[in-house]
């Protein structure tokens, strides 16, 4: 992970996505130019899901190894995942303001995503309420696994049972009829990959920062 190429790739892809996403032609469908939101809003949820998935994997690993590093990784991936989720929520609300006329519409997909974010906020509340570091790491790893298990129905299952005004109601919200236009894929896939690498980069910096802090506090003792 110390290599340089994927960081450069992330920057190049995201610069391309921001230029292309704003300037390239898009098909004029029901939602007109606001379809450009696909390039900025949907990759946030992809990023969030990936980050929470990695956080979940490290939580499982922590329960097997009990190493402090796995705990730090798990927390930081959850942190960045939450940031992605918040950005996804905000970009979605800006879009909803123009497409639906309201920032908060109470759409099933909005509600499901909001509850999913609450679950992960509760994870941080849980972490804050322990003083013993080992206990905090162990119990929050357990809750992290629960949070991920409840994320799947909240994001992927329940919104599909209810009818919704959100694009992609008739199937997968990310890859549906709007996206079939080949030109949009040329920007959308790079956006997903670029944001994923960007998330990894931010997380790796935060993990290094936390590890250095740990070392400093150990040497001071």
């Amino acid at each position: 992970m110390k290599k340089l190429w994927w960081k450069i790739l992330a920057i190049v892809l995201l610069v391309y996505v921001h230029i292309g996403g704003l300037l390239f032609a898009v098909p004029r469908l029901r939602i007109h130019e606001t379809i450009r939101s696909l390039y900025f809003h949907v990759p946030m949820w992809f990023g969030m899901t990936f980050m929470f998935l990695i956080s979940f994997v490290y939580a499982v690993r922590y329960l097997r190894t009990s190493s402090k590093e796995d705990d730090i990784r798990s927390v930081e991936f959850a942190n960045v995942g939450l940031a992605f989720g918040t950005l996804g929520m905000l970009t979605g609300m800006v879009w909803a303001h123009y497409a639906w006329g309201l920032f908060w519409h109470g759409d099933p997909k909005q509600v499901g995503a909001a509850i999913a974010l609450l679950v992960y906020l509760a994870y941080f509340v849980l972490r804050a309420s322990f003083e013993n570091q080992e206990q905090r790491a162990r119990l929050s790893a357990v809750y992290n696994i629960f949070a991920f298990a409840s994320l799947i129905p909240l994001i992927f299952i329940i919104p599909r049972l209810y009818s919704s005004m959100h694009p992609g109601d008739d199937g997968n919200p990310a890859f549906n009829a709007y996206d079939l236009d080949g030109r949009m894929r040329l920007v959308f896939y790079p956006a997903v990959i670029g944001w994923f690498f960007m998330g990894l980069w931010i997380t790796s910096l935060r993990i290094r920062y936390r590890n250095i802090n740990e070392k400093i506090s150990e040497t001071e003792l």
Binding site: I115, L118, A122, V125, L126, S129, F146, L154, I157
Partner: peptide, 13 residues
């Protein structure tokens, strides 16, 4: 407090 915070999001589904 922790019980309320942790449980409500999980039981919502």
């Amino acid at each position: 407090v922790l019980m309320a915070v942790l449980s409500f999001p999980v039981v919502v589904s």
